[in-house]
Amino acid sequence: MADEVKEQNTEKTELAEGKKAIRVNVVADKNAGAKNFIVKFGIHTVCILLALLSIFPFWIMIVNSTRSTVQIQEHALSLIPSTYVIQNFQILTGKSFNPAVGLLNSLIISTGSTLLTVYFSSLTAYALVAYDWKLKNAFFKFIIGVMMIPAQVTMIGFYQAVYAVGMTNKLSMLILPAIAAPATVFFMRQYLYPTLSMEIVQAARIDGAGEFRIFNTIVLPMMKPAIATQAIFCFVNSWNNLFTPLVLLTDSKKYTMPIMVSLLRGDIYKTEYGSVYMGLTLTVLPLIIIYLILSKYIIAGVALGGVKS
């Protein structure tokens, strides 16, 4: 694997040199077309390699979900699917929990927290960029400061608090804290700062629009690429979050999908790896779908985000 990276790196430098060459000759050169082709060819090669590297773990995971536990224990990695899909699925559904409920819970938590995070982070960021208020800088510094606190140990306090007020087994305890997402606010603020055109806001004010309406109808659409990016990250994070739900949700009707997979893995004496991979695959599929839906805002191209003046 290290060799591959090296290869890519050398390729990269070659490409960079190629690019330089083009720049020197500018457009008029007759060879430009050919060179352009070579550069593009190089870029595609690198991209295809990177893409293959990215697909690789998914392929392994999906293939393993079709293999029996014994096959997986013999050779953890295989590129060739086997025939144990149904058995693995039966083991997964034969446990004391229901994967469909797990998917639903995961969906509720992830969708809820993603919506809250992106909306309120954008709102907070807008407050930090568009208005002048006394505590603005202090508040911004405070948000940055909060972001830097390591997560592992503040967890202890969070659990204690949740247990103390008896709010375990409530999905809302995993959703509502998402309103305050310092890193997302930071990103939105950094995004909005050079992008936001106060002229447009002023124009809307003159037209008689209220501040809240301006934010919802003018500013939010302007932030689409940022929102899409952060929504993806937030959704993925929330979906894959294991530790917090694991400790807070002890009722099997509230389990999320990752909790169920970790239960399968936790059967130390006879771990059914085939069904673990089946569970992992089922966990990741909805993520991929959501990601593909949201990614159109990133893929669509340049026209989306810009401010038309």
Binding site: S96, Y159, Q160, Y163, F243, S262, L263, G266, I268
Partner: peptide, 17 residues
């Protein structure tokens, strides 16, 4: 029934709490 896996070391903290 409450089942929490020992993977990721979550069973004990939850049980203790």
């Amino acid at each position: 029934t409450t089942i929490i896996a020992t993977t990721e070391g979550a069973y004990q903290p939850a049980l203790d709490q």
